[in-house]
């Protein structure tokens, strides 16, 4: 039917949740939206259409605001996954920047002492240092344990 709209909204609300919480909240919000949609359609004596679904979603309030009201419930594996994603993101940024710098340098300097392997080694060293830095500064922990 018009489940795409509903799914899109629910995805936005549950985007930053841990996997268990996301599953439960999604199921509950979906049931609520479908109940409301059915009730409005029955009241007006019409078939369910996109306009009704839009109206119900609008009535729920903005997805970001609803998401912000939920308590943070993340399991250890959720937090580990978040940390890996953070490290991965930084690694990609590092890789892109180093490739750009490498290519710019190549224009001006012939016979550069670096090649792809060197950059790869740099990347691994960087990732190890960055992981140690994040863990030692408790950045990972304070970020995911914060109570709201």
């Amino acid at each position: 039917m018009h489940n795409n709209l509903i799914n899109k909204y629910i995805k936005k609300v549950t985007k930053d949740m841990g996997s268990d919480q996301r599953k439960e909240v999604s199921k509950e919000l979906e049931a609520h939206i479908l109940d409301s949609v059915d009730a409005i359609a029955a009241e007006k004596n019409v078939k369910v259409d996109e306009a009704i679904i839009r109206k119900v979603i609008l009535r729920m309030g903005s997805a970001e605001e609803v998401a912000a009201m939920y308590p943070i419930e993340k399991t250890f594996s959720d937090k580990a996954l978040d940390t890996l994603k953070d490290i991965g993101r930084f690694a990609i940024i590092f890789l892109i920047i180093s490739v750009i710098i490498w290519n710019v340098l190549r224009i001006y300097i012939k016979d550069l002492p670096f090649d792809t392997v060197t950059i790869f080694i740099f990347l691994i060293v960087f990732m190890i240092l960055f992981s140690i830095h994040m863990i030692s500064r408790f950045k990972i922990f304070s970020k995911y344990f914060k109570e709201t």
Binding site: H32, R59, E65, V66, M69
Partner: peptide
């Protein structure tokens, strides 16, 4: 009650 408000509250 604004509908989106209730569910986070129930969870809390």
């Amino acid at each position: 009650v604004e509908e989106g408000t209730l569910y986070p509250l129930l969870r809390r």
